[in-house]
Design a protein around this nucleic acid. Structure first.
Length: 821
RNA sequence: GCCGAAGUGGCGGAACAGGCAGACGCGCACGACUCAAAAUCGUGUUCCCUUUGGGAGUGUGGGUUCGAUUCCCACCUUCGGCACCA
């Protein structure tokens, strides 16, 4: 008789033993091939739910699989602990952010450990520890020394709810809301610290050395958005240069007006006295609009004439300068040339305000264009017309010819423009790594000397958000002396964007206790780069772009090596609440991990997460479906612990055929499971193991127990089970089958190709493509034999009705298709 | 508007590379065990036609092919990203 499977006892027991035996500690071993398997580190919000297991449990299974395949696998874990969400949660509860964060870490550690993953906890790193952010600050200073960090006054995005500036990447959606709190952002003119990520725009577009999902590469490419064109200098009538960027230099002769963004510095200067009042009214209205009525998506173009004129440098024509809010200051130069005949936005604007529409491009395949009557702009390339010396240039040469022309005349040049902006990292909040800079009235901004790092975050601070940096309000903290002249000076009171901390955490995992640098070079040389990286796709344009930039910048500074930090990336989907919505406390659809672990056990939850969804898709949580894997694990337990399965069956002797079928199924499953692990197809790993178990039950009934084939089946089954359900596999392996501890250090079994091969196959017999019969034949059947067998089938004869087959298609091992009529 | 991904039973999802659609599981129905229930085990479960046996069927409409969930074209829907980007 079999006893019951008690997940609580077993899981607890093995987790302790593995921990005590340091089974998962990763050590440098030059003899073995290393594999750095990284999962995006969890954020220490208090909002823990079961969705957090979803990226991790299948990743752990795959890391375990690779370890059994012979790799020396490092699978580290840590916590992203600084930042707005933690601070906001702390404020809500009236608890100090530090206290709140570290209490969360303690709880999360316990919860994560209950998963039974092979994390090497000795490598744990926490980004809010002074020993960690000491190096975050050190990296900032390196970037500063190399001119990659700079301070600039600029209009920046400000979240009025979070009371801080945000990076462009953290502003989402049509209404431009804060990525965290969803509040629409406003613009503020502030002096802030930036990283020169735009220096790396071109290199960030190169994905040739990494295996990343198409989706992420597309998102990053679109985010960076490189466009080729020309920079052309127009001049105002007063002689001020007015640079524009255009992707269509071939349409320069069609420019009939200029448009400046309302915030453009030349607006005041070009505006004539009689237009001043109206223009100022328009500008302040535009500013008001961008700040308050963000959601009013009024695509109707508005604008106003400044009274000023510019000179088109290609034909010296005098054209009016307008301002309009469809031109934005944050892209290009904030000024454009209006070519209404060939740009739809300019067209709409020109028609609305009665500006000339002049055709300068005539595509070959359409009737001659007429600026007065055309209903829309025609943006296609075509022969240049009305374009002075370039008239007649064919469409495929127009771009180059126009660039050559402006370069020769010295009025412009070929130019590349990017949508990517420099990374704004200043945050006017408390819970972050202080920016290690000192401002001296005499010497200017100076980095804190390296031996004084870290610049520690004081704990006695009024950390409630006021819009001012909390560190500024501290009575003494900011006062210091200048590292250069020794005179009185003040510290930077802003803290760093937490994405700075997470840009290099994979390096701290290498040697979290190392004090001579951010990481131990010995560890770096062995483990880096990260071989496999798993996590959510929502970071495509934030963390994943920052960390690539960070790596490339550090490479240029001689700190790290190689072109990329993470070679292979795979994204999981999202686990939703039972209502199909994103899990959140406010919706009340959060599934708590602790309760589930108590009820079902870690093995059941791990396997359920692998089985119930396509990993890359995710989906809504469902309390009922989990019964499937619970029953499966119970059936495994029953089969492996039932004493009658341990002894050769007295009554029945299995036939050779049964044993051969069993071996075949075992090795076919092994082949499939290995393939699926390689490809992150976790759901079919579980279904394959379920099928094999069903097959083993059948074999047991047929008397297979006790045979070498049965023992092999049991052995391979537990090895395959080990990565997905590590506890039950260990218990059955070590305690029941009495095999050498631990199943997790066993090698992955080898597929016996001969055992996999079928001797007989079922040929599908089709008539005109429809299945009419199935016939079991030997694998080695010849084509003419197979066709003869098919034609001999009674069912087939009935459908053919005596007609001569026009064609007989034979696909070896699969089917015969008889085509009649 | 632009770019990308995806549409398969009541549900989650299988189908390697154009060859048996619906593996595996949930749910449901019936049966066994039980005084009974739960658990467990067994059988069935795409839809339609009264059945033996047929017919239809992978978002919709076309196409290529002996054969299409799979390839091509057009369209619809859903989701994600970007968006007055010059």
């Amino acid at each position: 008789m079999s006893e019951n499977y008690n997940h609580a006892t077993i899981e607890n027991k093995w987790q302790r033993k593995w921990e005590a035996d340091k089974l998962y500690q990763a050590k440098i071993d030059p003899q073995r091939k290393k594999l750095y398997f990284l999962t995006m580190l969890p954020y220490t919000s208090g909002d823990l739910h079961f969705g957090h297991w979803y990226p991790m449990a299948p990743s752990d299974a795959r890391a375990r699989y690779l370890r059994m395949c012979g790799y020396n696998v490092m699978f580290p874990i840590g916590f992203d602990a600084f930042g707005l969400p933690g601070e906001n949660a702390a404020i809500q509860r009236g608890i100090h952010p530090k206290k709140w964060t570290y209490a969360n870490i303690k709880n999360m550690r316990r919860q994560l450990r209950s998963m039974g993953a092979m994390w090497d906890w000795s490598r744990e790193a926490i980004s809010s520890d002074p020993e960690y952010y000491r190096w975050t600050q050190w990296f900032f200073e390196k970037l500063y020394e190399h001119g990659l960090a700079y301070r600039k006054k600029a209009p920046v995005d400000w979240c009025p709810q979070c009371n801080t500036t945000l990076a462009r990447e953290q502003v989402w959606g049509e209404d431009r809301h804060c990525e965290r709190c969803k509040t629409p952002v406003i613009k503020k003119d502030l002096e802030q610290w930036f990283f020169r990520i735009t220096n790396y725009a071109d290199e960030l577009l190169d994905f040739s050395t990494i295996d990343w999902p198409e989706k992420v590469m597309t998102m990053q490419t679109n985010w960076i958005k490189r466009s080729e064109g020309a920079s052309v200098i127009f001049k105002t009538e007063q002689g001020d240069p007015m640079e524009v960027f255009t992707t269509r230099p071939d349409t320069l002769w069609g420019a009939t007006f200029m448009v400046l963004a309302p915030e453009h510095p030349l607006v005041a200067k070009v505006t004539t006295t009689d237009r001043k009042v109206e223009v100022e009214a328009y500008v302040s209205e535009a500013v008001r609009k961008t700040e308050i009525e963000r959601e009013a998506v009024d695509k109707e173009k508005t604008g106003i004439f400044t009274g000023g004129y510019a000179i088109n440098p290609v034909n010296h024509e005098r054209i009016p300068i307008w301002i309009a809010d469809y031109v934005v200051m944050t892209y290009g130069t904030g000024a454009i040339m209006g070519v209404p005949a060939h740009d739809q936005r300019d067209f709409e604007f020109a028609r609305k305000y009665g500006l000339e529409v002049r055709v300068v491009i005539q595509p070959e395949d359409i009737p001659p264009l007429d600026g007065v009557t055309m209903p829309n702009a025609v943006p296609a390339y075509g022969t240049m017309v009305n374009s002075g010396p370039l008239t007649g240039t064919p469409g495929d040469q127009a771009f180059q010819a126009a660039v050559k022309f402006i370069e020769e005349k010295g009025i412009g040049e070929f130019a590349v423009n990017y949508r990517l902006r420099d990374w704004l990292i200043s945050r006017q909040r408390y819970w972050g790594a202080p920016i290690p800079m000192i401002n001296c009235e005499v010497c200017g901004w100076k980095p804190v000397p390296e031996d004084q790092l870290p610049v520690e975050l004081p704990e006695d601070v009024e950390w409630k958000p006021t819009g001012e940096s909390p560190l500024k309000l501290h009575p003494t903290w900011k006062y210091t002396t200048c590292p250069e002249c020794g005179g009185a000076a003040e510290r930077e009171t802003d803290t760093m964007d937490t994405f700075m901390c997470s840009s290099w955490y994979h390096l701290r995992y290498l040697s979290p206790q190392y004090a001579e640098g951010p990481f131990d070079p010995k560890e770096y040389d062995y483990w880096m780069p990260v071989d496999v990286y798993t996590g959510g796709v929502e970071h495509a344009n934030m963390h994943l772009i920052y960390t690539r930039f960070f790596h490339k910048a550090c490479r240029d500074m001689g700190i790290v090596k190689g072109p990329e930090p993470m070679l292979q990336l795979r994204n999981q989907g999202v686990i939703l609440g039972e209502d199909g919505e994103k899990m959140s406390k406010s919706r009340g659809n959060v599934v708590a991990p602790d309760l589930l672990v108590d009820q079902y056990g870690a093995d059941a939850l791990r396997t359920h997460l692998m089985f119930a969804f396509r990993w890359s898709d995710g989906g809504p949580w469902n309390d009922e479906n989990i019964q499937g894997v619970v029953r499966w694990l119970n059936r495994i337990w029953a089969l492996f612990t039932d004493s009658s399965t341990l002894l050769p069956s007295a009554q029945k002797k299995a036939s050779l055929g049964v044993l051969c079928d069993l071996r075949r199924k075992v090795h076919q499953t092994l082949k499939q499971v290995s393939h699926d692990f390689e490809n992150f197809e976790f759901n079919t790993i579980i279904s394959g193991l379920m099928e094999l178990l069903n097959e083993m039950y059948v074999a047991r009934e047929s008397g297979a127990v006790g045979t070498p084939e049965w023992q092999e089946a049991q052995d391979i089954y537990l090895r395959m089970l080990a990565p997905v359900a590590p506890h039950i596999a260990e218990e059955l392996w070590t305690e029941r089958l009495r095999k050498p501890y631990s199943v997790h250090t066993q090698p992955w079994p080898k597929v016996d190709k001969e055992a996999v091969a079928e001797e007989q196959v079922t040929l599908v017999i089709q008539v005109n493509g429809k299945v009419r019969d199935r016939i079991t034949v030997s694998v080695n059947i010849r084509e003419d034999e197979a066709k003869a067998v098919a034609l001999a089938s009674e069912t087939v004869q009935r459908f053919i009705q005596g007609k001569q087959p026009r064609n007989v298609v034979y696909v070896p091992g699969r089917l015969v298709n008889i085509v009649v009529e």
